[in-house]
Design a protein around this nucleic acid. Structure first.
Lengths: 244, 244
DNA sequence: CGTATCATTGACGTCGGTCAATTCGTGTGG
DNA sequence: CCACACGAATTGACCGACGTCAATGATACG
């Protein structure tokens, strides 16, 4: 039984990114019948907050969502960026407080499902649980990347890495378009463990080199190849190709 | 259907740590019949390396295992510490190169299972896939904690956090014993994104305050409560209790 | 005993944080 | 259409946490 969803980017340059979080085509369309409804939210709205006890799980239909964790003194770490197709809100323990918050970076549309119904569905159609498990394992790779980013890369490498990853995830949806990220510099800082001031300095530098373009609340990725270079992806790929 | 494994630490002070990775008692004992054999390894041996293509998955029986990712220039990030009971080696894509390496921190014994047989078993007994999925979700919480650690905490907070987490995970197995960590200072640095020199300075400081004791290749946690304080866990818990 | 690994310590440098002051941009109300 | 408000972006000055380098000491192991 080969239960893994077919994944197209096995050989592509950014395969280390979990760019394939989408459920579309992975069999979980089957849960569409369980939908409890859609919910529309505005930028900066919260879908849930750390400590909430929720009965639902979500699939992101439109917009960007950020999962984050906040320390009591105001320091914030953004944990994941969710793009349309992402499945989220499922905690390991039922009736437990959410371990993190989910906030909209843009206007957002989510499909809402009853967690209980979903679990029942897993019981009826076990292959769905397997698919979710595999998604979960895939997400883990992305988290591993983020750990390496935060722990062992310089500020510029981190931000370049982030941009290349997002460029890749967006290109998979809209090939041929210059990727535009609806993120504030502060959000980028909270993603990469940096201050917004330092993020700004990096962006200024790159803007002068025409690697990115900033404006209108968007960051446009103009030379992803050069950014991949800064991120240190080139050499790493070579090393992997040798071992493969 | 309540499929979540009973977890005892819902209310305990360190519940944010995924200290409960163990499979024991979570229903996956059922896969014991699939065991392909045991493997014993010495400290510093690798179970697999980044880039390897393996057919097996593992359950750690004895010893400590470190999962890590290495950059081409030698920088290393340790991604997870595995204690006995941990299930690992399952990649989202079959026949794909491992995304990380697994190395023994101590002498180790692992049970080896054929991934193919395991997947067949999931097919026969779907509730097992669900359990693994839930484990996976639980691990994610630990990874979220690590991200917050690396991105938004100071060096001392990070190391204190690590020690408290490990102390908790060890106490769950051996209550009443002073926790002793078989980690080098360099490994602690690679876990927390620090240089081994800086780790040493922090440890010297704490040793003089009798918070920890160093020697014989072990780090003994003597005052976990004080370390939890340094880690900033006290205030955070209060904040959570308010919301709950 | 020789060798290798880990731990320790000091001197020094720097990456990135903090603080604070503008400036810009966008949306709002008059 | 303009005045204003408010958040985001920008810039400079300053500094401190942590890294790097290098030398020395402690331990273990064959």
């Amino acid at each position: 039984v080969n239960i893994a969803a077919p994944v197209s980017c096995t050989a592509c340059k950014a395969r280390h990114f979990a760019s394939c979080q989408s459920l579309t085509g992975s069999g979980l369309d089957a849960i569409a019948g369980l939908k409890a409804g859609d919910r529309r939210l505005a930028a900066a709205d919260h879908i849930y907050r750390e400590g909430d006890i929720i009965e639902d799980v979500f699939i992101l239909v439109d917009g960007w969502v950020l999962l984050y964790h906040m320390l009591e003194d105001g320091r914030r770490q953004i944990l994941e960026i969710l793009l349309p197709g992402a499945f989220f809100g499922l905690q390991p323990e039922f009736k437990a407080a959410m371990s993190h918050s989910a906030v909209c970076a843009t206007a957002v549309k989510v499909s809402v499902f009853s967690r209980q119904h979903l679990m029942n569905k897993f019981h009826d159609r076990p292959e769905l649980a397997l698919r979710v498990m595999i998604m979960c394992a895939r997400d883990r790779l992305a988290l591993y990347q983020s750990l390496t980013n935060l722990g062992r890369r310089t500020a510029r490498e981190r931000v370049a890495h982030l941009f290349v990853e997002l460029d890749h995830r967006l290109r998979a949806r809209q090939p041929g378009v210059v990727s535009a990220l609806p993120l504030t510099q502060e959000q980028i800082g909270d993603l990469m463990g940096l201050s917004k001031v330092h993020v700004n300095r990096i962006l200024q530098d790159w803007r002068q080199q025409h690697l990115v373009d900033v404006g209108r609340g968007l960051i446009r990725i103009q030379r992803p190849a050069k950014l991949a270079d800064i991120a240190g992806l080139g050499a790493e790929e070579k090393a992997l190709r040798r071992t493969a």
